[in-house]
């Protein structure tokens, strides 16, 4: 069912006023909607048919049967409502992705006081996922999200739905979680590395491991030393475990700079920087990143890459 556009907008505004975004929501009667399903209407029709039958055959027992069906329906309203009432939903983790691809948001469901069975969760245009919250334990669910553009992609309005126990009624609620997923820029290939530093400020693409660290000597390994600096050759030769000491030359690290891509659109700049972050990471070169309002010191590794990509996604508003 699709409402006409102005009405739909009104409805959307009403909903967002009634259900403001929050990082943690417990479903209560303000948020829960309930309405019979198609089967529920069919069931009521059957109850009415039995009622008419009971009247016409002057059969009180058939009348009682139709009343029993109606009573079950009434009681089912309470039970269906109860299955959603008191369900808590809060933010979980998030999994970022490149824009154009998909990311995922984790939603954690927790019970306030009772079990919640056979819940269906989805947001517009996604297949519903089923989950039950039992035994006072939290359940978590990963929901995919399309990353249509770079930046913080806010969680769409989540629909939580349940028909348990009789399927006669559908109870649902909308939850706007204050939760977002970062969409990294789509990498765009660009021949020139927008970087300072490296060898003589050259803008050449550094290849392979630059010999920019000067070996100073060895000392005995102590816990906490980086494993990358261990003298493995020496260890293999039976000289014991030693840590190599280096002296880092100034300017030996690459700084990817926003400024070096002047005359382009913001998104394009970010895409190129993204491409280079990935390239340098692949080549295992330490790199730093300078964006207006944010500077990331040179480092390397997975965590560093993520932080760089997240920074590109967050531009221009960093936490």
């Amino acid at each position: 069912m699709r409402l006409p556009a102005p009405l739909h907008d009104l409805y959307e505004r009403w909903l967002s006023r009634r259900l403001p975004r929050s990082g943690r929501v417990v479903l209560n009667q303000k948020r829960i909607f309930i309405f019979p399903t198609g089967y529920g209407f069919f069931y009521l029709l059957v109850a009415s048919l039995l009622f008419i039958g009971g009247i016409n055959y002057e059969n009180n027992l058939i009348l009682a049967l139709s009343f029993l069906l109606a009573s079950l329906f009434l009681v089912a309203i309470l039970h269906t409502y109860r299955n959603l009432s008191g369900l808590g939903i809060r933010n979980g983790d998030s999994e970022s992705g490149f824009s154009g691809a998909s990311g995922a948001l984790e939603v954690i469901l927790f019970p306030e006081r009772r079990d919640h069975l056979c819940l269906w969760l989805y947001w517009q245009g996604q297949a519903a996922q089923q989950v039950s919250v039992t035994g006072g334990e939290e359940s978590s669910l990963w929901l995919n999200i399309r990353l249509n553009q770079r930046g913080r992609i806010l969680a769409p309005r989540l629909k939580v739905e349940s028909r348990f126990p009789l399927g006669l009624l559908r109870t649902w609620s909308y939850v706007s979680l204050d939760h977002y997923c970062l969409a990294w820029p789509t990498p765009q290939e660009w021949p020139q590395c927008p970087a300072d530093g490296g060898d003589d400020h050259s803008q050449q693409v550094p290849t392979g491991r630059a010999g920019n660290d000067e070996f100073q000597g060895l000392r005995e390994y102590s816990p906490g030393d980086s494993l990358r600096r261990i003298d493995w050759k020496g260890y293999a030769a039976g000289k014991g475990l030693n840590t190599k000491l280096f002296e880092e030359p100034a300017g030996g690290r690459l700084w990817l700079r926003w400024d070096r891509l002047e005359g382009m659109g913001d998104e394009q700049r970010l895409s190129i920087l993204c491409h280079w972050v990935l390239t340098l990471d692949q080549q295992q070169l330490p790199y730093g990143l300078v964006l207006p309002g944010m500077t990331l010191a040179p480092d390397m590794g997975d965590v560093h890459r993520w932080r760089a990509l997240d920074a590109l996604a967050c531009y221009p508003e960093f936490d």
Binding site: P223, G224, D225, S226, L227, R228, Y235, A236, A237, G238, D299
Partner: peptide
């Protein structure tokens, strides 16, 4: 034992590592 944590520490620095014993 005492370990002073630093930013360039890797998981292996704490847990240990398999090494080839010649």
């Amino acid at each position: 034992r005492r370990v002073q944590f630093t930013s360039d520490m890797l998981p292996a620095d704490i847990l240990g590592v398999s090494v080839f014993d010649p």
